[in-house]
Amino acid sequence: MTHIHIKNLHVAYGSHTVIEGLDLEIPDGGIVAILGPSGCGKTTLLKSLNRLLDLHEDVTVRGSVLIDGEDIYAPGSDLLALRKKVGFVAQRPFPLPMSIHDNVAFGARLHELPTVADRAATSGTVERHLRRAGLWEEVKHRLDAPAKGLSIGQQQRLSLARALAVEPEVILADEPTSALDPLSVRIVEAQFRALRQDYTVLLVTHILRQARRLADYVIFLYDGHLVEHGPAETFFNAPVDPRTQAYLHGEIS
């Protein structure tokens, strides 16, 4: 199982420091919920773990992130392998300009996973991952339709299927149910529960109840600082920091 160890991480956009001196060892396997008020740096933290921050202009990252003992910020580290290993489901879904089928197959084809050499073989993989994201029944008759035509909620599940199809070991999910109706939320949550056996899932969420339902471990960020973290039981039942207590009581959101 993949092990993530963050050491003294600083992230700044221009001169605006967003994450400051974060030290954290993320437990292997299970669902790790990342909680915190809006703008506290949850998305930034997620994106620092697969080096997606590299895409932003004038962003500076200091410190190190060790994944299975290797610093992903070391010069010459293999970014493609990193992104294969650490999948990402974005806060705002964006379908690639191609069919639903090809969206799911996109990453798998890039990494030349043996199962996806041709269409006949891909369709099995595509079906499996669409099912896992709870989208299969809705799209099975229009796999060749452009993914743009899906609703936002469907696009969000497509994003999840697309990320799963790369067969990562860690999944970074940024509010993956924010645009879903209650039924789809239940499907996707069930999926995450199933994933916790084999994967480490880092799940950013705004919904406290979702975190209570799913999390094995909780990380609470406030204004770019790691305030409190621990097993879900302890975190929810016996929070230590006053800010955590206030957050859990809905006094800061």
């Binding site: 997606l52 999948g87 974005a90 690639l96 300009p97 697309r162 990320a163």
Partner: peptide
């Protein structure tokens, strides 16, 4: 987001240009 999500799936800049950006 187009670049971000294609990058997250492990595509290189060239692959994104050819397979995604040109099309979009």
């Amino acid at each position: 987001e187009l670049w971000e999500q294609a990058t997250a799936l492990g595509a290189t800049r060239g692959e994104i240009t050819l397979k995604v950006a040109l099309r979009q």
